[in-house]
Amino acid sequence: MRAMRVHAPGGPDALREEQIPVPAPGPGEVRVRVAYAGVNFIDAYKRSGAYDLARPATVGEEGAGVVDAVGSEVTEVQPGDRVAWAGTTGAFAELALVRAAALVPVPTGVTLRVAAAVMLQGLTAHYLACSVYPLSKGDRCVVHAAAGGVGLLLVQIARRRGATVIGTAGSEDKAELARAAGADHVVLYQQHDFAAAVQDLTDRRGVHVVYDSVGRTTFLHGLTVLAPRGMMVLFGQSSGAVEPVDPQLLNRHGSLFLTRPTLANYIATRDELLWRAGELFEWIGSGELDVRIGAEFALAEVADAHRALEGRRTTGKVLLRVDPECDRM
């Protein structure tokens, strides 16, 4: 079968297509015929060596497809079921092995294309807005990269929960996407002083929470716009890793809270995974949550997909087409 593999850390061209043996599912495992795979920054972090990865490896953390075979002790799914997953490496291939407990059934009315697009970023947006800092009516929040894959979903969920949303974007086109998703205000960070703009928009009261996926270039400014006892939620580093932080900064800016969450800890049980995914699919099915797919690439074009994502030339979700015919089964 075809798979996109990494043998050594490097740039996008470190990804190369190989023919590898078809894997057999072991106990508790499922083999899935991949329809679509999601492209995410975590794939780039693992490819480049910023995150640990046992190499050689097939990358890709997110996908959707049809169950092809099951191992022993699997009770959750059966061959022919439509499923999606996030957080299991190996999606950039024609067939992927996934733990049965990590698979989510895709309901009728949600395509595998949309399911692949919403799993990692949608689950992330859900846990950020519903659990890390559970937004409620009257809360004010900043969403950095508001036109990105997580950003557009997070803006919608935040508004759904009654919060006032201040987004940031790098261009007017991206700002329009964020506004269309429901952002109350959008700051063009390349043209305006982000911190000053937020203080003006909040009458210098600040915001209750900053959701920061950008990292190095936004983190310290973000601390200055938080209200006393506000929370900085750092969940990515698209501009680079944040330098070590002196905890006294949190004291000086108003007894702030800082957290660096990761998705795995917020889908640690199957019940929690099914709850979060179930709500996302319900909102999609009812038209309450719009999933924007900004770009699609063929499996063999994965290096181009990584270049587009890392060059910030994308909005919404980036997908790889692996076997779209699965969506017609």
Rank of each mutant, 00 (worst) to 15 (best):
residue 1 M to T: 12
residue 2 R to H: 06
residue 5 R to E: 00
residue 6 V to M: 04
residue 10 G to D: 14
residue 20 I to Q: 01
residue 23 P to Y: 00
residue 24 A to K: 02
residue 26 G to W: 14
residue 26 G to R: 09
residue 30 V to A: 12
residue 33 R to I: 04
residue 40 N to L: 06
residue 41 F to Q: 01
residue 42 I to V: 15
residue 42 I to Q: 02
residue 42 I to F: 10
residue 45 Y to H: 05
residue 51 Y to F: 15
residue 53 L to P: 08
residue 54 A to R: 15
residue 55 R to K: 10
residue 56 P to A: 08
residue 57 A to V: 02
residue 60 G to Y: 04
residue 62 E to G: 09
residue 66 V to N: 09
residue 66 V to F: 11
residue 70 V to N: 06
residue 73 E to H: 13
residue 76 E to V: 07
residue 78 Q to S: 03
residue 78 Q to G: 08
residue 79 P to F: 12
residue 82 R to E: 06
residue 86 A to P: 03
residue 87 G to H: 13
residue 88 T to I: 15
residue 88 T to E: 03
residue 88 T to K: 07
residue 92 F to E: 01
residue 95 L to N: 02
residue 95 L to R: 03
residue 96 A to P: 00
residue 106 V to G: 01
residue 107 P to L: 09
residue 108 T to W: 01
residue 110 V to R: 04
residue 112 L to A: 08
residue 118 V to W: 02
residue 119 M to Q: 14
residue 121 Q to T: 14
residue 125 A to R: 12
residue 126 H to W: 15
residue 126 H to K: 10
residue 126 H to V: 06
residue 130 C to Q: 15
residue 132 V to F: 07
residue 136 S to G: 05
residue 136 S to K: 06
residue 140 R to E: 07
residue 144 H to E: 11
residue 146 A to E: 11
residue 146 A to N: 04
residue 147 A to G: 03
residue 148 G to N: 10
residue 151 G to R: 07
residue 153 L to A: 10
residue 155 V to D: 03
residue 160 R to A: 12
residue 163 A to E: 09
residue 163 A to Q: 00
residue 168 T to F: 07
residue 171 S to A: 11
residue 171 S to L: 11
residue 175 A to H: 11
residue 175 A to L: 11
residue 178 A to S: 13
residue 180 A to Y: 06
residue 182 G to F: 09
residue 183 A to P: 04
residue 187 V to K: 07
residue 188 L to E: 15
residue 193 D to W: 15
residue 197 A to D: 10
residue 198 V to C: 01
residue 198 V to F: 04
residue 199 Q to N: 00
residue 201 L to N: 03
residue 202 T to N: 13
residue 203 D to Y: 05
residue 203 D to M: 04
residue 210 V to H: 01
residue 210 V to F: 13
residue 214 V to F: 05
residue 218 T to D: 00
residue 225 V to D: 11
residue 227 A to V: 02
residue 227 A to H: 08
residue 227 A to T: 14
residue 228 P to Y: 10
residue 228 P to N: 13
residue 229 R to F: 15
residue 232 M to R: 02
residue 240 G to E: 15
residue 243 E to Y: 04
residue 250 L to T: 03
residue 251 N to C: 04
residue 254 G to C: 04
residue 256 L to H: 10
residue 256 L to G: 10
residue 256 L to K: 01
residue 257 F to P: 02
residue 258 L to V: 12
residue 258 L to D: 07
residue 260 R to C: 00
residue 261 P to L: 12
residue 261 P to C: 10
residue 261 P to M: 12
residue 262 T to Y: 08
residue 266 Y to R: 08
residue 269 T to A: 08
residue 269 T to G: 02
residue 270 R to E: 14
residue 270 R to S: 11
residue 272 E to C: 02
residue 279 E to G: 05
residue 280 L to I: 14
residue 281 F to R: 04
residue 282 E to W: 09
residue 283 W to Y: 06
residue 283 W to P: 00
residue 285 G to L: 03
residue 285 G to V: 12
residue 289 L to G: 06
residue 295 A to Q: 14
residue 307 R to W: 09
residue 312 R to P: 10
residue 313 R to Q: 15
residue 314 T to Q: 00
residue 314 T to W: 01
residue 315 T to R: 07
residue 322 V to T: 14
residue 324 P to A: 08
residue 325 E to N: 11
residue 328 R to V: 10
